[in-house]
Write a protein that binds this DNA or RNA. Structure first.
Length: 283
DNA sequence: CATCAACCCTGAGAGC
DNA sequence: TGCTCTCAGGGTTGAT
C-alpha cells in the first residue's frame, strides 16, 4: 500500500541520492534482469522491454499519483508498486569486482554502466513496470494531483457533484483523484467528519471544504513523516504512529472516546468513528 | 453509471 | 512446535 506519501518519499530519495548512493538521474542502463515476467506490463514481451531500455540514460525521477516516472533520453520508464515494495539504488559490485547477490523479492534489476543498480522490490507480485514512448498512455486517465494547485475546492466540489457514489470508493478511484489509498482515505474522512458510506453528491459545502482540507493535510503529514511503515510492506516512515482510525478497530476515538468501528466498503477494510462520522441514513 | 465479486500474490496471525 | 486456514489490499475485468 505505498500511497502518495510513500511513493513521494521513494521518488525524492532516488532523485536526490543519499549518503550511501548517488542520485539516479544521469545513469545509463547497461543491463536489465527480470526475475518475474508478469511485473512487465508494457511492452507485453519482457525481452522487448529490456531491449528498449538498454543504452538509455535516466534523466529525472518524478511521481504521478502512485506511479514512479523515470523520463529517459528516449522514452519513459514507469513503475507502480501496487500492494508492497520499494525501489533501491545500491552498489552492484564488491570492491573485488564480484557481483552482490540479488535478493529474494527483487523482481526487476536495472544495472547501470557505473557500478550501481536500481532494484524494483515487490514482495507480493502485484507491481508493474512499463516502457513507453508516450507516458500519457499510462497517466492519461488519472485524476488530479491532490497537492497541486489544480486541485481547487471549486473543482473538487464540481467533481463530487458529478457522481452519486459512496464517498470512500470514489476517493480511492484513481480516475477521480490520484494518489489516495485505503489508509489515507480513512484518515482523511475521519478528519473531515464524513462517514465513508455517504453519497458524494449529498455532502454539504462545509463537508466538502473539510474533506478537501483533510485530504491535503493527511498527505502532507504523511510526506513529512516519510510515509507509513506497515509490516514488511514498506519500511522507513513514521506516519503509522499518527493514524487516528486506520488499524485501530475497537480502540477509543481520539476525539470522543467511542470505539473505532471497522466495516467493509467497496471490498476494503474501512475504519471510522460512528459518533464523529454520522452515517447517511441518520442525516 | 454504480456496485459487487473474482483475480493476481505472499506473509502474518489465528486456530487447532 | 508446526500445520492449515483466513485475511489484507491496488487495480483490472467482467457480471448484475
Amino acid at each position: 500500500m505505498p500511497e502518495l506519501p510513500e511513493v513521494e518519499t521513494i521518488v525524492r530519495r532516488l532523485k536526490d541520492g543519499s549518503p550511501t548512493f548517488p542520485p539516479v538521474p544521469g545513469h545509463t542502463i547497461q543491463d536489465v534482469i527480470i526475475t518475474w515476467d508478469k511485473i512487465i506490463a508494457h511492452p507485453e514481451n519482457p525481452a522487448s522491454f529490456k531491449r528498449h531500455l538498454l543504452g538509455k540514460t535516466i534523466l529525472d525521477v518524478q511521481r504521478r499519483g502512485k506511479f514512479l516516472h523515470f523520463p529517459l533520453n528516449n522514452g519513459h520508464l514507469i513503475g507502480h508498486l501496487r500492494m508492497s515494495g520499494d525501489m533501491r539504488m545500491e552498489i552492484r559490485l564488491s570492491e573485488q569486482g564480484k557481483p552482490h547477490p540479488i535478493q529474494a523479492y527483487d523482481r526487476v534489476v536495472i544495472n547501470f554502466k557505473a557500478p550501481w543498480r536500481l532494484v524494483f522490490v515487490n514482495v507480493r507480485k502485484f507491481g508493474r513496470m512499463y516502457y513507453t514512448s508516450d507516458p500519457q498512455s499510462i497517466f492519461g486517465d488519472l485524476g488530479p494531483e491532490p497537492l497541486n494547485p489544480e486541485f481547487t475546492l471549486q473543482a473538487f466540489t464540481m467533481q463530487l457533484h458529478s457522481h452519486n457514489r459512496q464517498i470512500k470508493p470514489l476517493l480511492m478511484d484513481q480516475h477521480f483523484i490520484a494518489g489516495l489509498g485505503n489508509i489515507y482515505t480513512d484518515e482523511a474522512l475521519f478528519r473531515a467528519k464524513v462517514h465513508p458510506l455517504r453519497k458524494s453528491d449529498s455532502l454539504s459545502q462545509r463537508e466538502i471544504q473539510q474533506l478537501h482540507h483533510a485530504i491535503q493535510t493527511v498527505l502532507r503529514e504523511g510526506i513529512v513523516q516519510f510515509g507509513a511503515s506497515l509490516d514488511w510492506v514498506y519500511r522507513g516512515g513514521e506516519f503509522q504512529n499518527t493514524f487516528k482510525v486506520y488499524g485501530r478497530e475497537g480502540e477509543p476515538c481520539p476525539i470522543c472516546g467511542n470505539p473505532i468501528e471497522k466495516i467493509s466498503v467497496g471490498q476494503r477494510g474501512t475504519h471510522f468513528c460512528l459518533q464523529c462520522q454520522i452515517p447517511p441514513k441518520a442525516i
